[in-house]
Write a protein that binds this DNA or RNA. Structure first.
Lengths: 202, 202
DNA sequence: CCCCTTCGGTACCGATCGGTACGGATGTGC
DNA sequence: GCACATCCGTACCGATCGGTACCGAAGGGG
């Protein structure tokens, strides 16, 4: 027996909720949480304002759901990068993936997790803090991965895994800012490779 | 004979315009251009709304003047760094100065030139572009400085000065983002030193 | 077939946004 | 001391903000 989706009573939704969420991601990504107005969002999502509120709660909840979808979709390279066999391969995959995701043709430049809400007014402080937590989560994953590498002898025993993780995210954040400023993919790939030049080797 | 300031006719201004500008810098720095409301600004500056408009034009002009004052004040380390004798000393001074300025106790964390307006709504696009130009100006200065270093034999002849400049600003931007996320000064100094480890040497 | 639930959109809410009209106050130049 | 220029702040402007009340439409369960 399958446990199907719970009985969908009432009038069915006339739009694809995931597709609408994808559109919202693009708006938040290019304009930031505060810069994205409900008119911007509803127009891009192709739905009315009350539909948005019924489906997603409010603007803040919509942002969180958009961030979640962004994480599982456009930044899924990150999870794959963690599975690389060596720490250097992890670092390379993270930075190359960052460059590619931040300079994807047809999509906004930069990274939603950085420019979504870096500095905000008081009302949006929770959103800003959520993005801080999002970035810290990435650091935590990298730290654990590099600790593994140290334990496995893939990195010198004296290595500080947290420092390496922080370094990697710092460069990734910088790449995101530069991408949002118009730097090209080839330029940023060179920058990424330069940053990887200081990776500790046995 | 001194050419004194032109005859100040009319009722004299009752507040120090530079001090008010310093307060505005702090507001824009911590909340960003869009997140800083006129009420935030006037309250922090200790002046009324019409006084602000008489003295500074409008919110956008005020931001540009605040950015200028920020550049000449809190980021003056950058101009000094360019005068360092070697390219590596320049790079070190830039990154260390970035870390210090971005984690100054009692001041907002991060960098006004990054978080002032990274992603904005349509109305603030000019401000965003102005900050892009601000960051590109830094890259241009660094590029010229590193070209000098190549010409002077301080860097290998095969070095790409623009790539080094872009790399440096990328790391600096990343440091600014991490500082705004709460990373500590000692942590970020280690990150900066790690980034300097890949600096090309003769 | 009717009830119930959820969806749809129009039209509205109070609050806040950036910006200004205006009248009183305070200085300099004649 | 009088005209003039600039400053001061109160009180206001239209526009836009995020959010919602309302009612007709569209489906499932009895």
């Amino acid at each position: 027996m399958f446990s199907t989706t719970p009985a969908p009573t009432g009038r069915p939704r006339a739009f694809d909720i995931d597709e609408a969420l994808d559109r919202a991601v693009l708006v938040f990504w290019s304009k930031g949480f505060e810069g994205a107005s409900l008119d911007d969002l509803t127009e891009a999502m192709g739905i009315s304002r009350p539909s948005l509120y019924r489906a997603f709660g409010n603007k803040e909840d919509l942002f969180y759901k958009a961030l979640e979808r962004y994480t599982e979709g456009l930044t899924s390279y990150f999870a794959r990068a963690l599975a690389e066999p060596t720490s250097e391969a992890v670092a390379t995959a993270v930075l190359h993936g960052t460059v590619e995701a931040a300079t994807m043709p047809g999509l906004p430049t930069g990274c939603l997790g950085v420019q979504g809400a870096l500095a905000t007014g008081d009302e949006s402080r929770q959103v800003r803090d959520a993005l801080i937590a999002w970035r810290e989560d990435g650091i935590a994953h990298l730290t654990r991965r590099f600790q593994q590498a140290v334990d496995a002898g893939d990195l010198p025993p004296s290595t500080d895994p947290h420092l390496l993780a922080l370094y990697l995210r710092t460069v990734a954040n910088g790449i995101a800012v530069q991408a949002a400023s118009g730097s090209s993919r080839p330029e940023l790939l060179q920058v990424a490779n330069l940053a990887l030049g200081s990776w500790p080797r046995l």
